[in-house]
Nucleic acid binder design. Structure first.
Lengths: 337, 337
DNA sequence: CTTGGCACTCATAGGGAGGGAGTGCCAGCG
DNA sequence: CGCTGGCACTCCCTCCCTATGAGTGCCAAG
């Protein structure tokens, strides 16, 4: 159905169009890629490719540009992920190594990825539910106020103020703190609700109201933070691109956490690279953009996802290489900290 | 030099140009504003205004548009801050009241401001150095690791991991924690360095290396976080505007923390509204934009700044009203929490 | 199956011509 | 002395037209 030469033609069309941003004609192809055949032959092949929906022409007398289906075939079968150069890898490593807390890691990552790919980078904070408890702390901050601090194995720290409504002794707090830690240490965050179910029974009667308040805030925190935080960078890279759908829609989408979530895909998704091209994209305003995403995490455990958003006309092999590399390095950094 | 009618003409030019985005001519002015004089008279006034540099014409046979100097005069003498409507005020209040931690307050504020003004909103996190210590906590998280948590009166929580390199007993930690809190409670963050200077002397000899590590991390945190975090929202509102300098430069500027800092101005600046118009702006890429900013804080104490960035052709009275109102409400929210 | 030739299509750029908005100037009037 | 109406002038903008040229599809020959 599509012989090798036709595939080669498609690859050439994609590559040329990506690099020039102009419809590519048969003559240009024959000149720049030594396909060993004449423009006329290429024209015939292109006619077939167009008939099958892999390429299209913007106007009757223009060259061809790939369709979403064409890009899809290119990504699946005609290209290989392009590894980063050694200097690039070193740059990533040193840049990320300087980070000193989770915010900083994420912030550096997203800026790095934007700069590497010259597109918009999107990074999701490591999921709370997929982390485990490293430590829980209870701190009295005022007469009837406690601060609950929750530290996860990914370095994430959540804190919330608790109104106890009654005075509470240092000893009670210490006891409660000890209970919480023995009960929750190393506990999967998703399992916290069941783990603490037994806890109130082990608390002296006079402290039970406080314990209840603490637990309710703790559970609340887990639920609230379930909608994961996502940040992006590199919006300026969108400016030179001409989106037929309008820049505005893309910028709007970027500021919607929910949209970004869906964009990156589920954390459970294949931890390797995911590419979503044009109309494959769930969001309406982003049907002329593509997303290259990957999961990252500590070891094999995917904690969250990160990726890049750009025009469908993007350098897929290069972008995929950058995303994959950055995802790996972030995983390493998180594992170390 | 400029009589009342000429000022009225300038005001009318600014208002019409802001609302229509088209150069405004003498006839249109005479029609829409009842100035009580004929177009010919207005033409004479406009000629004077142009000579003095308050307005200019893009082409010979076009209407006039205000210059930066014209906007400046408008803002300083010809307009009054437009208060928000009651529904708007209520909306702000309820929207901000739902916030449950500092991140959330800032996040909501910036989105709110962007939506109210239909422009780009910029909010600086409450300054660390201008806050005071509410509580310091030391938590053992592993064999030779402590977590330092610093809580400020503005609800900001900073945490850092400390490598002690030697084992340390619970008692020592408790002692150190108590020392830190008595020494620093309510202490102005800027004064922390001097306040802790005496501290090592009060620590048992065997704990001094740990104490030193803790203090160095504490001071480091204060220094590092001195470059305040700034967030923005509403970039999508830039899309429909045509910046002569190019959208790209504006977007780039928005992603540079340092630029945003300078944009908002020094926290010490007048806590009331600051307006910077066009070329008054320090940053090169933003010479066709204006910034309306204000300080906000708890009580009279300005903690940080927030503001709005838009084209010089913006609705100054409305924007100023929105910025002022939001700044006040955020101050209230922070004071309560 | 490939190739060169050829007619055809159509987007794009360049060049006037006409219309119109707005101005500056001037003479007259209160 | 300031305001007003009239009038000529200046350009910008739009529309239309044409020329150009890239690229295609088709066809007949190798």
């Amino acid at each position: 159905m599509l012989d090798d030469r036709k595939l080669a033609v498609l690859r050439a069309v994609v590559e040329d169009y990506v690099s020039t941003n102009e419809p590519v004609g048969s003559k240009a192809l024959a000149d720049r890629h030594n396909l060993g055949v004449s423009p006329a032959t290429i024209r015939n092949d292109m006619a077939v490719l167009e008939e099958q929906g892999y390429i299209t022409q913007p106007h009757t007398s223009a060259g061809r540009i790939p369709t979403d289906k064409g890009y899809r075939l290119f990504v699946d079968r005609l290209s290989t992920v392009k590894p980063l150069s050694a200097p690039e890898r070193r740059a990533i490593e040193t840049f990320l190594a300087g980070a000193y807390d989770l915010d900083d890691v994420v912030g550096r990552t997203v800026r790095l990825l934007a700069q590497l790919t010259r597109q918009v980078a999107v990074v999701q904070y490591p999921s709370l539910t997929r982390s485990s408890v490293r430590h829980v702390e209870l701190v009295p901050v005022a007469a009837q106020r406690l601060l609950l601090v929750l530290i996860t194995n990914t370095g994430r720290v959540e804190q919330r103020v608790i109104e106890t409504h009654i005075d509470i002794s240092e000893d009670s707090i210490a006891h409660l703190r000890a209970l919480l830690n023995t009960c929750l240490d190393g506990c999967w965050l998703g399992d916290v609700p069941t783990a603490v179910a037994e806890l109130p029974g082990q608390v002296p009667v006079e402290d039970r109201s406080v314990a209840a308040a603490v637990l309710s805030v703790l559970l609340e925190t887990l639920v609230e933070k379930h909608d994961e935080k996502i940040v992006f960078a590199g919006a300026a890279n969108l400016a030179p691109v001409d989106f037929s759908q309008g820049l505005r829609q893309v910028l709007e989408a970027l500021e919607e956490q929910v949209v970004l979530m869906r964009l990156l895909g589920e954390v459970g998704d294949s931890s390797t690279l995911t590419v979503r091209i044009g109309t494959e994209n769930p969001h309406e305003g982003l049907q002329t953009t593509s997303v290259v995403a990957a999961g990252y995490g500590v070891g094999d455990q995917a904690l969250a996802r990160l990726g890049v958003l750009g025009p469908t006309r993007m350098d897929y092999p290069g972008t995929m290489g950058a995303v994959r590399a950055v995802a790996r390095y972030v995983g390493q950094i998180l594992a170390e900290s």
